[in-house]
């Protein structure tokens, strides 16, 4: 089942761009552009795994919306132009899972969303791609009925590409997320591991090299 995310943001251009990206990353979403409206909407439908809240909203601000989210146990990530420390602290004190300051990158938002879902145990632990099944908990990869044996780093790389399906990931981003910030090796490491994955899973795994940017796993 897809994770469902609530977006409360009064700037339509931002809300729609986020929505489009969420959809492409296999999430369901709902956009509301008014604080008070969001509060009343929750009374009827509160089946959300996460809420992305803007702080400055018409009628009811994002901080006030927090109690409604808590009532229905929805984790909150604030998106806001307010970068001062006091509002960040206020947001986190109120119980927000995370706080992201505008302007931000979509990929960063997606990573944070995934981390929150994993932390709150709402993330789907089994990823599917064509005939490939990746079980994040058991760390097992199956292609059709065959179990494919992967090195730990190869597994993490595959998981990352699957989580951000249809999304171009730069070599640096992959290095940071899979190997960690302190990894001393160069970006060539990524190329080698991608080559291993292609070899082990065959042509079914459609990893596209994007010139100058990185890699993208396409449907």
């Amino acid at each position: 089942m897809k994770n469902r995310i609530l977006i409360v943001e009064d700037d339509a251009a931002i809300a729609e761009a986020i929505g489009l990206n969420l959809m492409l990353s296999d999430y369901d979403y709902k956009i509301i552009d008014d604080g008070a409206e969001a509060a009343s909407f929750l009374a009827d439908d509160h089946n959300f795994d996460l809420a992305l809240l803007d702080v400055m909203l018409p009628n009811l601000d994002g901080f006030s919306l927090m109690e409604h989210m808590e009532r229905y146990n929805i984790p909150v990530l604030y998106l806001t132009a307010k970068s001062d420390l006091s509002s960040r602290i206020k947001g986190l004190r109120l119980g927000a899972e995370d706080y992201i300051v505008k302007p931000f990158e979509m990929l960063e938002l997606l990573v944070r969303i995934e981390k929150i879902l994993a932390r709150t145990g709402k993330l789907n632990s089994v990823l599917r791609y064509k005939t490939i099944t990746v079980d994040l908990q058991k760390r097992r990869v199956q292609q059709g009925d065959n179990v494919v044996l992967l090195q730990p780093l190869e597994f993490d790389l595959l998981a990352m590409l699957l989580k951000f399906k249809n999304c171009t990931l730069s070599r640096d981003r992959l290095l940071n997320e899979v190997w960690g910030f302190d990894f001393a090796g160069g970006t060539r490491t990524v190329d080698i591991h991608v080559a291993h994955l292609r070899k082990k899973l065959g042509s079914e795994l459609n990893i596209v090299s994007v010139t100058k940017l990185g890699y993208r796993l396409e449907d």
């Binding site: 489009l20 505008k102 990158e105 999304c167």
Partner: peptide, 19 residues
Amino acid sequence: KTPVTSLLLNSETLTTRTV
């Protein structure tokens, strides 16, 4: 910040994703 965020998000979507 708001228009810049919007520009960034939309242009990023167009460059990194198949839509």
